[in-house]
C-alpha cells in the first residue's frame, strides 16, 4: 500500500511565528487546470495590522545589526534555499511551471539573494558622500533605511519576483510586510520558513497571503508604513498612490519582468533609503601654515 503523505499546512508568517490568519478564513490555491492544491490563509486587515506592528518592533533589531552581519544573514538565506531547492521546484511545478523553468527560477532566486547579500555592506560606500561645504564644517550624507516597507509581491512570479524586491528592501536594513502573490502563493510561505531558519529576526519580514484587492487598503493607508513597493498592478496604481498620501509614503512602482537578469542593482536598495546629511564644526587651530 502506498504511504499516506503528510500534506503541508500553509500559514502566514508574522512576528517570527506561523499563525493562521486571525480571521479564520481560507482560500484555495489552484493549479493551472484549476484544481485545488492547497488551502491558503485568507489574510485580513488585522493580519496586516499585526504584521506592521511586528515589523516596526523588529526595525531596531534588524537595522541595528552591522551591515556585515546582515550580509551574512542574507547569504545564509541563499544557503538554506539551496538545500531545499527541490521543495521550491516542486511547488513551482505544482503551480504550473515547466520543470526546467522551475529549476531556473529557483537558481536565479538563489543567485539574486547572494547578489544582494554582497551589497549589504557596500551600497552605503557608493551612494554616501562627504560634501565640501564652504564653511568650517565636516558635512557628510549617508543612507538610512526608510523604515517599515509594505511590499506587494510581483504577481507574475512566485519566488523570483518576491526575492527580487524583498532582498534589496531588507539588505538596506528595512523591515517588511509582504502581501504574497495571490494566485501563486506556495513559494512565499515556504520562503518564510527559510527566512525563519536563517537568523532573520522575527518580525523583520512578515508574509501574508490573501486577496490583494482586500489587503492593499489596510497596508497602503497604514500610517506606520513608511514606503510601499509593487510591480505591475497598473490598474491599481492610482488607488495605491491615493491611499499612500496621508503619511506621505514613498511609493515605488515597477513594471518589470523580474526574470530578466538586469532587474537587479544598487538602485533597488537605495529606492528604500533616506539620505541623511550631518554637519559638525571643524575647529581650525594650528597647522594652518604647515606645508607638511
Amino acid at each position: 500500500m502506498k504511504r499516506v503523505e503528510i500534506l503541508k499546512t500553509y500559514k502566514i508568517y508574522s512576528g517570527g511565528k506561523f499563525p493562521r490568519t486571525e480571521s479564520g478564513r481560507y482560500y484555495m490555491a489552484l493549479d493551472k487546470k484549476g484544481n485545488p492544491i492547497a488551502n491558503m490563509c485568507l489574510g485580513s486587515r488585522k493580519d496586516v495590522r499585526n504584521a506592521v506592528v511586528s515589523a516596526r518592533k523588529a526595525l531596531g533589531a534588524w537595522s541595528g545589526k552591522t551591515a556585515f552581519n546582515r550580509s551574512q544573514i542574507l547569504y545564509r538565506i541563499a544557503e538554506v534555499i539551496e538545500g531545499r531547492k527541490s521543495q521550491f521546484v516542486e511547488e513551482l511545478i505544482l503551480q504550473g511551471s515547466q520543470k526546467n523553468s522551475a529549476i531556473k527560477e529557483v537558481e536565479d532566486s538563489i543567485d539574486r539573494i547572494v547578489y544582494y547579500a554582497g551589497w549589504c555592506d557596500k551600497f552605503c560606500q557608493i551612494g554616501s558622500s562627504v560634501n565640501p561645504v564652504s564653511s568650517s564644517h565636516f558635512n557628510f550624507s549617508t543612507y538610512e533605511p526608510v523604515g517599515v516597507v509594505g511590499l506587494i509581491a510581483p504577481q507574475d512570479s512566485s519566488l523570483l519576483g518576491l526575492v527580487s524586491l524583498l532582498m534589496p528592501i531588507i539588505a538596506g536594513g528595512n523591515t517588511c510586510v509582504v502581501l504574497a502573490n495571490e494566485s501563486l502563493p506556495l513559494c512565499s510561505i515556504t520562503f518564510s520558513e527559510v527566512l525563519h531558519a536563517s537568523d532573520v529576526p522575527g518580525g523583520a519580514v512578515n508574509i501574508i497571503t490573501g486577496h490583494i484587492s482586500e489587503l492593499i487598503k489596510p497596508l497602503s493607508t497604514h500610517m506606520d508604513v513608511n514606503a510601499l513597493a509593487f510591480s505591475g498592478l497598473n490598474e491599481l496604481k492610482k488607488e495605491i498612490d491615493l491611499f499612500s498620501v496621508e503619511n506621505l509614503k514613498r511609493v515605488r512602482s515597477y513594471d518589470l519582468n523580474w526574470k530578466n537578469t538586469d532587474t537587479q542593482g544598487l538602485h533597488y536598495i537605495t529606492d528604500f533609503q533616506e539620505v541623511k546629511t550631518t554637519w559638525h564644526p571643524i575647529e581650525n587651530i594650528g597647522g594652518a601654515t604647515s606645508t607638511y
Binding site: 564653511s135 568650517s136 564644517h137 564644526p281 571643524i282 575647529e283 581650525n284 587651530i285
Partner: peptide, 14 residues
C-alpha cells in the same frame, strides 16, 4: 569653588 568651565566651540564663536 572653581566651577567646571563650559567647553567652547571655536566655529560657533567665530
Amino acid at each position: 569653588l572653581l566651577p567646571l568651565s563650559p567647553t567652547v566651540d571655536k566655529v560657533g564663536v567665530e
